[in-house]
Design a protein around this nucleic acid. Sequence first.
DNA 1: TTGAAAGCGCTAACAT
DNA 2: ATGTTAGCGCTTTCAA
Lengths: 339, 339
Amino acid sequence: MITIYDIAKKANVSAMTVSKVINQTGRISSATRERVQQVIDELGYIPNSNARSLVLQRTGILSLLITDITNPFYTTLARGAEDAAHERGYRLLFANSDEDYGKEKSYVEALLSTRVDGVLFAPAGDRSLDHLQQLQARSIPFVILDRTVPGITSDVIAGDSREGALQLMRYLVKLGHRRIALVNGSPDVSTARLREQGYMEGLQEAGLDADPSFVLRTDYREFRDEQALHSLLDGPDGPTAIFAANNLVAIGVIRILRKKGLAVPDDVSVVCFDDLDAASAFDPFLTVAAQPAYEFGARGMRMLIDRIEDKAPAEPQTVILPSELRIRASATSPRSAPW
Amino acid sequence: MITIYDIAKKANVSAMTVSKVINQTGRISSATRERVQQVIDELGYIPNSNARSLVLQRTGILSLLITDITNPFYTTLARGAEDAAHERGYRLLFANSDEDYGKEKSYVEALLSTRVDGVLFAPAGDRSLDHLQQLQARSIPFVILDRTVPGITSDVIAGDSREGALQLMRYLVKLGHRRIALVNGSPDVSTARLREQGYMEGLQEAGLDADPSFVLRTDYREFRDEQALHSLLDGPDGPTAIFAANNLVAIGVIRILRKKGLAVPDDVSVVCFDDLDAASAFDPFLTVAAQPAYEFGARGMRMLIDRIEDKAPAEPQTVILPSELRIRASATSPRSAPW
DNA sequence: TTGAAAGCGCTAACAT
DNA sequence: ATGTTAGCGCTTTCAA
C-alpha cells in the first residue's frame, strides 16, 4: 500500500509537509505544494482514513439506521439523508434493522466500533432504549427519526401521527363510514400508539363507539395474518372501512381482501399512512396521509450535522413534519351510506 | 474514550492479554479470560475498529455501489446484498451514484480511503472503466453487478438483457404488434445495448423493418422527455406498442401517454424490464421481463466474499441470471390486429 | 500462559 | 516554510 511516506520520499519533503498539502493546513510554498501535489496525482495516492480517524478522533462517517429497506418511505428518507450528508462532506453508513431489536443491537455495536461521528436513528421501538443509551453513554450525537422512545431526550424529526390519523378518520366519517377498523403496528412503537389515539379521537368526534374487536395490532411490515383479518370482517357487522397503520400494512390488507373476493373500495374502503413510491404513482390508488419522507431524511441529517459541528442550539430540538391527506380511489362512501 | 489499556489495567493484565481474549487467539487461562471478559462487559468496552484495521490491513467493511436508490430493482438488490454480508460477518457501506459518473468517482475515492475489503459495483456505464481500474490497481476485489464494462475482466453477476428483450418482443409480436418502438437507456450502458440488440432480433425474427425513428435513447431514470415521445407517436404510422428499457422508463412513458390522452394498453401497449416493488404488487399492471433482484445482490455478495476469502476459483466467474416474462395488463393486441 | 516492544499510517505540537 | 517527535488504539512478533 502506498503511504504518505512514499509521497514524501519521492517529493523530497517530510511526511508532515505532504500532510499539510493534503489538508491545506499550515504554510507551504506554492512551489513545494505543486511538486507534492504532482507526486500525489502521479502515484494516485489516497490517504488512509482509518489512520486519520485514529489521530483526529473523528471519522467523517455518519450512520443511518432505518427499520425497513423495503418500505418506500424509508428508501426515500434514505435518499434525503444521503443527499444532505454528501452536501456537507460526510460519508454515510447505512444499516437496516428490519424492525428487529437483535439486528438493531448488532448494528449499533458495529457503528460504535467504527466510531461514527453521529447517527440518524429510526428506532425499531421502545426497546431501542438500551441502544440509544449506549450512544448517549459515549456522547455520540444522534437524531431520532420518525418514532420517539420514552426515556430518551434528544433531537427528533417526527411526523404528526395523531393528527394524520385524525384526518384520515374524519375523511372516512365524512364519506359515511360508521364501522371503521384499525389494523395497527405494534403498541411498542410510538407512531402506532399515536395513530391509535387519532383513531380513537376520530371515533369520539363522530360519536361512534370504540369496538375493541375492531382493532388489530401487528407490526409495520406487510400484513399477512389472513385469519385475523377474516375474523375481523366476518359476521353481520363487519367494518365498511379499514384504517391501515402504514402503506405496507395496507397492501397486505388489500391483498387479503381481494383473495377473499372483496373489492376495494366497493366492498371495503382502505386508507393508510405513508405514500407509495414513484413506481405506483402513475396509477395512484391508495388514499393516504402522506408524510414528507425525503424531508425526514434531509432535515434530520442537517440537524445531526449541525449538532455535531456545534451549530445547533444546546437544547434538543423537535421538528414535527405534518402529513398531507391525498384522496384517491381506495376509499368511497359505503354501500349503506346514510344518504 | 475507553481503550484496551483501561481494560488491561482494571483486570491487572497486559493489553496483549485483553486482545487475546477479544480475538480468541493464543492461549489464555480460563480464569484470566473470565476476569477480563467481566471487565469488558462491565465497562461496555467496544474495540476501535479503525485502530484494528490499521494493523490488520483489513476493515471488515464491504461497499455496495448502486446507481439508483429510487429504483426498486436496486433496493431489492441492496436487501439481498445486506443479508448476505451480515450472514458472513461483514458490514456494508452503501453508496448511490445516481447514474452520475462524478458522484461515482467521489464514492470510489471515499471507499478507497476507507480501505474497504471489497466492492459490489453496479457501474453507471462504460465510463466507469477508470474507477474500476483504480480498484484493480490497488488489488481491491470487486464483483460487477448488472452491467458489464468493456475493458474490465472480473467476476460478474448480470441478467440476460438480450434474451429478456427478445422474450418481450416475441410476446408483443404474438399479440399482433408490427410497429414497436423502443425507449432505451443510454448506449453507454451495456444492458441498454443488449436490450436494443434483443429488440432488433425480435424485429428481424418477425420480418419487420427496423425504423430508426422508432428508437429513443435516454437514461434509465424516470423518463420525462414529452417532446421526444410526442414526435415518436404523432403521425399516421406511430407505434402500437412501446418497449421501455426499464421500469422507471416505463412509468415515465405511461405517465406521458396518459397526459396526452392515450390509454394503456387500449391505445398503446407498454412492456419493460424489471418488476416494480411490493407496493405495486397488489395490482400488478405492467407486463415485464422480471429480473431476480434479490438474487443479484445476495449471490453477488457471496461471490465477492468468496473472492476475498480466497474461496473462489482463480478465473473470474460470470453468472447470468435469467429474467422471467410476467404477463399482465399493460399490453394487449393492437386495435388493428390482423385477425 | 503472559507481556514488552515495535509499528500500522497519519497529524498535532513543537522545534528549527 | 519545513521537519522532528510522539502518540492515536490496536496486534504481531518474540521473549520470558
